[in-house]
C-alpha cells in the first residue's frame, strides 16, 4: 500500500502552494509528519498522491521580533521554540507547552504549525498560542495560482476535533504572530497527563496575565480539551479583570471556567468528572505562576522535557 506517491520539498510558499494546487486536493502539506504520517499509516486518513514538505521554506522556519510583535514560522520545530531565549522571556507559556510535546525525537521534527493545523482541542502548542491571542498568516492560492496572504485569529482555524478550518488543497499557515510579554505581563502553561491509555494530555491550560498595582488588568485563559476546539474561558477572564489575584477568588474563577467548559468523558483517557476536578488545580497552578512572572518580570520556563 502506497501512502503517498510523491514527495516535494519546495523552497518557497509560492512553490509549496503551486505544488498543492497541481494535485488538486490530492496532496497534503506535511511538516514534521509526527501527526500526519501516523494517521496515514494507521488508516485514519486515506492515502494521498503527494506530500508537500514545508520545512525548507525559510520564511516558515524563522523566529523574529519586530516592534514588540513576535513572529514564529509555522514550520519552526518545538525544539527550536524551546531553545529560543526570546520566547522563553516573552512567550513563556509557549515554550513550556512546546517543551512537553512528546520526547526530543518528536520535538526535533514536530512543528507549531502542524500542532495547530492538526486541530486537536488539546494540542499543547496551540493552547498557548490561544492564550497569547496569536494570529496565523495564511497563504492562499487563488485562481491562476495568484497567492494572497491574510492574518486570521488562531482560534478561527478550528472547526471541530481534528477538523481544521483550513482548505487543505490551497491554504497553508506561513507563520504566527502575537505580542510578546511586556512589563507587568507574564504567562504559564500547565497540563496533566495520564500514565495509562491514550498518549494525549487529558487537560492543558495556558494563562496570560497583565498586572499592575496589585490588580489584574487583563487575563486570558485557554484550555483544552474542554470542547470540540481549543477555547478561552471568557467568563473567568472577565471576572478576573480589575481585581487582585488572591486565593479567595480561585474557587469562583474555577467555577466560571467550568461553566464555559464542555467536558467530556473520553474512553480510556479521562472521565468528565476527573477533568472537572483538574480544572481548579491547573488553574491555580498556572495562574499563580503567570502572576508571579507578570509581577516580577522573571520568567524561567518550568517542566521542560518532562
Amino acid at each position: 500500500m502506497t501512502l503517498w506517491e510523491h514527495y516535494h520539498l519546495p523552497r518557497s510558499v509560492d512553490e509549496a502552494l503551486s505544488s498543492l494546487a497541481a494535485y488538486d486536493g490530492r496532496a497534503c502539506v506535511v511538516a514534521g509528519g509526527t501527526d500526519l504520517l501516523l494517521e496515514l499509516q494507521q488508516g485514519r486518513k486515506p492515502p494521498v498522491a503527494a506530500l508537500v514538505d514545508v520545512t525548507r521554506v525559510s520564511e516558515m522556519t524563522q523566529i523574529a521580533e519586530t516592534d514588540g510583535t513576535i513572529y514564529v514560522g509555522a514550520a519552526v520545530t518545538h525544539t527550536h521554540i524551546v531553545a529560543s531565549p526570546l520566547l522563553a522571556a516573552r512567550a513563556t507559556c509557549l515554550v513550556e507547552s512546546c517543551g512537553v510535546v512528546g520526547g526530543p525525537q518528536v520535538r526535533n521534527v514536530g512543528t507549531l504549525g502542524g500542532n495547530v493545523a492538526h486541530a486537536l482541542p488539546a494540542g499543547d502548542g496551540t493552547i498557548s498560542l490561544v492564550a497569547l491571542e496569536a494570529e496565523a498568516e495564511i497563504a492562499v492560492s487563488g485562481r491562476r495560482s495568484a497567492v494572497s496572504r491574510e492574518w486570521r485569529p488562531v482560534l478561527s482555524l478550528f472547526k471541530g476535533p481534528g477538523k481544521s478550518a483550513l482548505d487543505r488543497s490551497r491554504e497553508l499557515i506561513v507563520r504566527f504572530r502575537f505580542k510578546g510579554a511586556g512589563s507587568g505581563e507574564g504567562s504559564a502553561f500547565k497540563r496533566m497527563m495520564r500514565p495509562q491509555g491514550v498518549a494525549l494530555p487529558i487537560m492543558g491550560m495556558a494563562v496570560w496575565l497583565k498586572v499592575s498595582g496589585g490588580v489584574v488588568d487583563e487575563a486570558r485563559i485557554a484550555l483544552g480539551p474542554a470542547g470540540p476546539t481549543p477555547m478561552r474561558a471568557t467568563k473567568a477572564e472577565t471576572y478576573l479583570s480589575d481585581i487582585p489575584l488572591v486565593d479567595d477568588v480561585l474557587p469562583q474563577l474555577a467555577d466560571l471556567v467550568l461553566q464555559d467548559a464542555q467536558l467530556r468523558t473520553s474512553p480510556h483517557r479521562a472521565t468528565a468528572d476527573y477533568r472537572a476536578e483538574l480544572i481548579p488545580v491547573l488553574l491555580e497552578r498556572a495562574l499563580k505562576l503567570a502572576h508571579r512572572r507578570a509581577a516580577t518580570g522573571e520568567a524561567v520556563p518550568e517542566g521542560l522535557g518532562m
Binding site: L9, V30, L37, L38, Q42, L51, G102, P104, Q105
Partner: peptide, 25 residues
Amino acid sequence: EAECGSCSVLVNGVPVDSCVYPALK
C-alpha cells in the same frame, strides 16, 4: 509510530525517529 525510539538516528546532529521520517527529508 514514533513511540519507542528504537529507530533513533541523528540527522544533522539531532535525534529523530527514523521510522516515521520520510527519507527524502
